[in-house]
């Protein structure tokens, strides 16, 4: 077989490697993971988003509806440690405010990278 460069992973899918790289640069990092969904949530369970202390993000936990709120919550987790379970959905008025207008609901687990 010929030796050729491996096809490179798409940067957008490289959430964990990017999180590790950010931490290596001395930044605080938090990871958000979709752990449950109901209805027409745009991203399935297991979808991940990494956030650094400057609000930079890679990956996704929705179609762009709740990332802003998750990034905000992530700052707290990075500053104070500990983990958080966040819920967004049609039954939650906050969810409408942050804009999960697709009608689904989901639970997101937020943890710092230690």
């Amino acid at each position: 077989m010929n030796e050729s460069p491996e096809a490179k992973a798409t940067p957008a899918d490289d959430v964990l490697a990017t999180a590790a790289r950010w931490q290596d640069q001395g930044l605080k990092v938090a990871l958000a993971t979709v752990v449950a969904t109901w209805g027409s949530s745009p991203r399935p369970a297991g979808s991940q988003l990494a956030v650094d202390e400057n609000g930079r993000m890679v990956g996704s936990v929705s179609g762009g509806c709740i990332e802003g709120a998750v990034v905000h919550e992530a700052q707290g987790v990075m500053a104070e440690g500990g983990t958080k379970l966040l819920e967004y959905g049609v039954t939650d008025e906050m969810a409408w405010e942050v804009g999960l207008a697709c009608g689904g609901s989901l639970r997101v687990y937020l943890e710092p990278l230690d």
Binding site: L16, A17, A20, Q23, E111, P112, L113, D114
Partner: peptide, 10 residues
């Protein structure tokens, strides 16, 4: 997530 677990996963 602990960094050693992340490194092992990577």
């Amino acid at each position: 997530m602990q960094r050693d677990l992340l490194d092992r996963l990577l």
